[in-house]
C-alpha cells in the first residue's frame, strides 16, 4: 500500500524537487536575512556600521564594547527599560493567566444565566484588536489623571480576552466533572476545588496562556508610548523607538541596533524553547 502510493511520487522529476528546494531556500533567506543583519550589525562600532558590507562582519568585532557602552549611556536607562519590560510582561502575564483561568473555568464548567452573553462579549473583544482600545483608554486615563504611572500600562496588561477564550477551551476539554464532584463530596469549597484541582489539571495549558500574554505585553508599543511620557517608566520598545527617532544624534545607531538585539533575545529564546506551547495556542486560536 505504502509502496503503491510512493511509486508514482518517486517518478516525479528531479527538476520539480529542485524547484521546491529553491522556493524553500529563497523564503529562508527572506526570513533570516534581516535578523542576520541585526546580529552582524550589533558587532560593529559606529565607524564600521555603514562603511562595511551590511551583511558581513567588519574587521573589528566590538559587540562587548557596544553592550557596555549601551548599559552606561544616559545613566543606564537601557537596563531600566529592560527591567520595566520584564516587570510589565511577567507581572501582567501572571495576573492575566490567573484571571483567565478563573473566568475560563467558570464559563466552561458552571451553568448560570448570561453565560453565553459573557462569552460572546469576550469573543467580540478578541476580534476588535487591542490598539483600537489604546486611544480611548488613553483619553479616559488622561481625564482621570492615571497617565504617566506604572498602573496605566500594568492594569490593561492583566486583562486578556484571548486568554479567557483559551482557558475555557482547555477547561472544557481537560477538567472532568467527576473530579469536581469528588472534591465537592469531600466537602471542599468552590475556591479550594479551583486552587487544588482545576489549576493543577490546567497547568500545562496555562503555560500557553501565560506565554501569549507575555509576548503581547513585551511587544506592545502603542499603549505604553501613549501612556508614558516619563522615560524611567517606559518599556524597552518605547525607549528604542525614541532613540531611533533622534536619528543618531544623541545615541549612536550602533547602540540602537545592539539594544534591539538584546531586547529580542529573551523572547526568541522563549519562542524556540517552548514551541510546543505556541502551536497549541496558535491552532486553537485560529482553526477552531
Amino acid at each position: 500500500m505504502k509502496e503503491a502510493t510512493r511509486g508514482p511520487a518517486r517518478a516525479a522529476n528531479p527538476a520539480g524537487r529542485a524547484g521546491v528546494l529553491a522556493v524553500l531556500l529563497l523564503a529562508t533567506v527572506y526570513s533570516l536575512l534581516p535578523v542576520w543583519w541585526l546580529v552582524v550589525s550589533a558587532t560593529k562600532g559606529s565607524s564600521d556600521l555603514f562603511s562595511s558590507n551590511g551583511f558581513w562582519f567588519a574587521g573589528r568585532i566590538e559587540i562587548v564594547q557596544n553592550v557596555s557602552t549601551l548599559l552606561g549611556v544616559q545613566d543606564g536607562i537601557f537596563g531600566r527599560w529592560m527591567l520595566n519590560s520584564l516587570l510589565y510582561a511577567v507581572g501582567g502575564a501572571l495576573v492575566a493567566t490567573l484571571l483567565s483561568a478563573m473566568a475560563g473555568y467558570v464559563l466552561a464548567k458552571y451553568a448560570f444565566r448570561g453565560r453565553e452573553a459573557v462569552f460572546n462579549t469576550v469573543l467580540g473583544a478578541i476580534l476588535i484588536p487591542a490598539p483600537l482600545f489604546a486611544l480611548p483608554l488613553y483619553l479616559m486615563f488622561s481625564a482621570t489623571h492615571v497617565v504617566n504611572t506604572f498602573w496605566a500600562v500594568f492594569v490593561p496588561s492583566v486583562v486578556s480576552p484571548f486568554g479567557v477564550y483559551l482557558a475555557r477551551i482547555y477547561a472544557a476539554a481537560a477538567v472532568p466533572d467527576e473530579l469536581l464532584e469528588a472534591g465537592r463530596i469531600d466537602g471542599a469549597g468552590e475556591f479550594r476545588i479551583f486552587r487544588s484541582i482545576v489549576l493543577r489539571v490546567l497547568q500545562p495549558s496555562l503555560v500557553t496562556v501565560f506565554l501569549f500574554q507575555f509576548v503581547t505585553v513585551w511587544t506592545n508599543y502603542l499603549l505604553p508610548s501613549l501612556m508614558l511620557a516619563n522615560d524611567r517608566l517606559q518599556p524597552v520598545t518605547v525607549g528604542l523607538v525614541a532613540w531611533k527617532e533622534q536619528r543618531g544624534q544623541t545615541v549612536p545607531y550602533n547602540l540602537v541596533i545592539t539594544g534591539s538585539l538584546l531586547s529580542v533575545v529573551p523572547i526568541v529564546v522563549m519562542f524556540l524553547l517552548l514551541q510546543r506551547y505556541w502551536k497549541a495556542g496558535l491552532t486553537s486560536g485560529s482553526v477552531k
Partner: peptide, 30 residues
C-alpha cells in the same frame, strides 16, 4: 524550514520595524 519561517514572528513588531527601517534608510541601506 519551519523554524526559519517562524522566526520573524518571534521578533516583536517594533523591533522588526526598526530593523527594516535601517535596511530601507537611504544612503546606508545595504
Amino acid at each position: 524550514f519551519r523554524l526559519a519561517f517562524f522566526l520573524p514572528y518571534a521578533i516583536p513588531g517594533v523591533i522588526g520595524g526598526l530593523m527594516w527601517s535601517f535596511l530601507y534608510q537611504p544612503d546606508v541601506s545595504p
